[in-house]
Design a protein around this nucleic acid. Structure first.
Lengths: 223, 223
DNA sequence: CGGGCAGGTGACAAACAGGTTATAAGCGCG
DNA sequence: CGCGCTTATAACCTGTTTGTCACCTGCCCG
């Protein structure tokens, strides 16, 4: 899930980027209006966070440019008290706004809400280590390699493992999360699914480097 | 909305074309005077952007040729400081000029102003890549081909895909947006609608180049 | 040493999703 | 009322995905 963050304040930009990256988003940064527009055009992010005061083009203008081509969620950042800025931003098609200063937690919550509203995130989007999951496209990219198509179940399994990257997830939990199975029982399904997933994402499926077998379950190795 | 861009500098031409395309215009390119005139005659664009220095025929001569037959807006591009060029261009019937270098957004703003003045402003159709949707006429144009008439549902489907051009839109979302269906369920309708739409807009409906099947949905491919 | 167990593998069948074609139902309109 | 166009329903075909089974290996432990 790509998010473009445009703000001329490098510190704030980095803070936001850090917050989002930790939560599994792929973050692109822009420090002024024109590079924000360029970033949007070249990367087609899934959401844009726009500061209003930016050199080159204001957040308003960038928002306008984006709306000409796309309805992706746009979140504007405004300074407290500038009421007409808000009105104008929302009038231009922005989806939400935050007044500075705000807590990273708030930002995260709002962003998730926006993505949910846009029907994108069925759950938290995820990347960890060299593994990047694209829920929309049903693909996974390992490092720089071409994305690999995943089936519904493979996607769900990988999503679960990714959400707990580095930690073991028990087979029981996986069964429940992937199949909605009542209680244990059908380990064979999981065995098979892991096998199929390894065929797709492991360089050497016989010696798994990513999807490792662990005590009573599996884990995704991230460096 | 067709715009003819004539400039011998391929980079600048592409930059302008890119800017305009992203803003929803259908752009035609010409690299020299004669092909500019030919482009004008064959495609009857709604606006022409003309560089003055071009091989074959200068921008002046092209402008003159155009003015013999049409009053469509012409914007000239000049090098800074050549004042008499401006005078001459405006004398020949050009409507506006820009001195190089200029920012894409300046160009865009001026072009919009020209079209507005010419009374063509409100017709900007939804476009992405080679696909241009006309909501008033219920038609779609692929590249330079003749517009194709669409039914209500076909139009809505294409509009949804266009609004998310390049990204997969899940079948569920499409069902909701196109039919207003409460719950998923009726994939058959979508199957059919996609099939009929492909018959209309794809050169080879059996091997779709635009409306592609993607994981759990469909997507409109744009270059 | 040998049985039991967990995980890995290959083969195969059932279930499913998407494409295609045909046909019926609905609807606007003269 | 019937005509033509649009939309819905159904049946069939295909390739993919998923579930099931049989068998293998390595390992723990009596």
């Amino acid at each position: 899930m790509k998010v473009l963050v445009a703000d001329d304040d490098a510190d704030l930009r980095d803070l936001i980027a850090f917050t989002l990256t930790q939560s599994g988003y792929l973050v692109l940064k822009a420090g002024d209006g024109p590079s924000a527009v360029r970033g949007f055009e070249e990367e087609s992010p899934d959401l844009v966070v726009l500061d209003i005061n930016m050199p080159g083009l204001s957040g308003f203008q960038v928002c306008e440019a984006i709306r000409k081509r796309s309805r992706i969620p746009v979140m504007m950042l405004t300074v407290r008290g500038e009421e007409e800025d808000l009105v104008r931003a929302l009038g231009l098609g922005a989806d939400d706004y935050l007044t500075k200063p705000f807590s990273p937690r708030t930002l995260l919550a709002r962003i998730k809400a926006l993505l949910r509203r846009a029907g994108m995130a069925n759950a938290t989007p995820l990347t960890a280590g060299r593994v990047a999951l694209d829920l929309q496209e049903h693909t996974v990219s390992i490092g720089r390699a071409d994305p690999v198509r995943l089936t519904k179940l493979e996607l769900r399994l990988l999503q679960m493992l990714l959400a707990n990257a580095g930690h073991t997830v028990s087979s029981d939990r996986l069964l429940v999360q992937v199949w909605g199975h009542r209680s244990g029982g059908d380990r064979q399904l999981l065995k098979q699914l892991v096998h199929r997933l390894r065929q797709k994402i492991e360089a050497d499926p016989a010696a798994p480097a990513l999807l490792r077998t662990a005590a009573a379950g599996y884990k995704l190795l991230v460096e």
